[in-house]
Design a protein around this nucleic acid. Sequence first.
DNA 1: CATAGCATATAACAAATTGTTATACATTGA
DNA 2: TCAATGTATAACAATTTGTTATATGCTATG
Lengths: 295, 295
Amino acid sequence: MNIESLKLFCLVVDEGSISQAARLSFVSQPAVTRQINQLENFYGTLLFDRTNGKMIVTEIGKILYPFAKAIIHDFERSKEVILLQQGEYHLNLRIGASFTIGEFLLPSLLGKFKKQRPEIKVTLTIKNTPGVLLDLSNDVIDLALVEGFVETNHLLVKKFAEDELVLVCPPDHKWRNRQDVPIDELVNERMIWRESISGTRHIVESILKEYGVLDRTINYMEIGSTQAIKSAVEAGLGISILPKLAVAREVEQGQLIKVNITKIDLTRNLWMVQKPQRFNRKGLSDFVKFVKSSI
Amino acid sequence: MNIESLKLFCLVVDEGSISQAARLSFVSQPAVTRQINQLENFYGTLLFDRTNGKMIVTEIGKILYPFAKAIIHDFERSKEVILLQQGEYHLNLRIGASFTIGEFLLPSLLGKFKKQRPEIKVTLTIKNTPGVLLDLSNDVIDLALVEGFVETNHLLVKKFAEDELVLVCPPDHKWRNRQDVPIDELVNERMIWRESISGTRHIVESILKEYGVLDRTINYMEIGSTQAIKSAVEAGLGISILPKLAVAREVEQGQLIKVNITKIDLTRNLWMVQKPQRFNRKGLSDFVKFVKSSI
DNA sequence: CATAGCATATAACAAATTGTTATACATTGA
DNA sequence: TCAATGTATAACAATTTGTTATATGCTATG
């Protein structure tokens, strides 16, 4: 039993005409005729008296009418109420980001987005990359913005920006006037690292390993915060390889010295990761579009 | 939107399982899966959380549930109420019959039928044939039982019995000891007729006309009642051609003399006439079957 | 009273929907 | 780990729904 049929039935009752009901419903007249016929067959009785080509509802049709109206009403309400509920859903956006992205890239980006779409409520959660991806798979966030090494297992991954990793040293370091430093010279330098599950560290380690330098550097210190690492380097405790994004201001103001590693490109991609969902929050696709267009 | 889909949705919610819902509905599991999917697509949202293969209704599904229940309930009620109404309809049977059939054939027939089906309420209306057919076309009766000459125009006509027309004369008539009377001898006899629209008269006239006798008989009297004609013949006012059914008892008791007209068969058919209706009263088809089987 | 205009019904066919079976994939529990 | 169970998907048949073309029947109008 189709609710549309009941809707047509009511319309024919109200209009007293199949043709008129068809016009109002933007379907052909035979379509309405058949719907009414099927309704009559279903209930096993005539719903209209067709004497003289007029459609006059029968006694039994009059009995059906309020039931049909009630069904239609409930159905329409169900659509409305769910749509309302959906509204809140779609206007909520939960973003997770790794430290570098969350602390240095997203704040201004989110600011611009909120200016364009103030009605969308954004929640930003900053964790290390594995934590963010865990949140994603647990449906705690709708979108993950992370750097490096995402297994594409059941996840939608798309590059949305690049960031360069740069070697920084204190202003009084011996490399302070060098443009380039060959990678070999990193040997015996005191390296300050992020914690071992950090996306940034993962990338740096794999590069150094590739060049056989990793094992010969001095793992001098591990600090769980980029901000703290910067302070440590500034204080002359060692050197570090950090995202350009994170040290841009300190380098500009001379608190840190940026040194290129000869011939080595430490550019890595930044990824947007989504879980493939049958129904996404509308705010999500809007934000994804915004990020793509603004970077 | 199909009410069956909503029913399945509720069943899946209640059972927490698509497979179980499929079993209870006697359809295949993929059929239920797709119904649920289409429902989700229609509302643009997930109605179930399928984590770990379980079907747990979502918040929005919980919103839909009472609406679906209400719709299903109203729909079921509409079926019940209409069926109830139908009951009265189907147990009512309005029969119309022409005089001869209504007065001499139907009473015992209806008695037997009521003994078999006491729950069916029968209304019998007796009129002349055109009146009965008019009632039929005006939906005042459901079944007409008439003799002769029914235009098959939009009507379902079926022979259900035969009746013979017989010539009757008073017991002191000159033909009282004759077995046969040639048709020519009818000339100059005082004929007593039914009214001109009577089915019986129609048939008799056409036979007499066929043999060229009609214009030479004496149209002595027209009486609107078979019973009155019988009395008139008995009183010696003339002769008449009447249905065998109507004179059987009087002939047996010697109050009227039956005379055959040589070599002429005045057997005529009795007809059951129905309007072709899309939905007939059940009592009607039952009565039609009863009549066919009992005659 | 014939006929144009309007309404419903029916037939034939295309498109969409619904059901089926077979099969893939994921989870659970022995 | 593997069998058992449950959901999803693909491919196909059967049914349903819409369409256009056309028949039929009533009403109003000249």
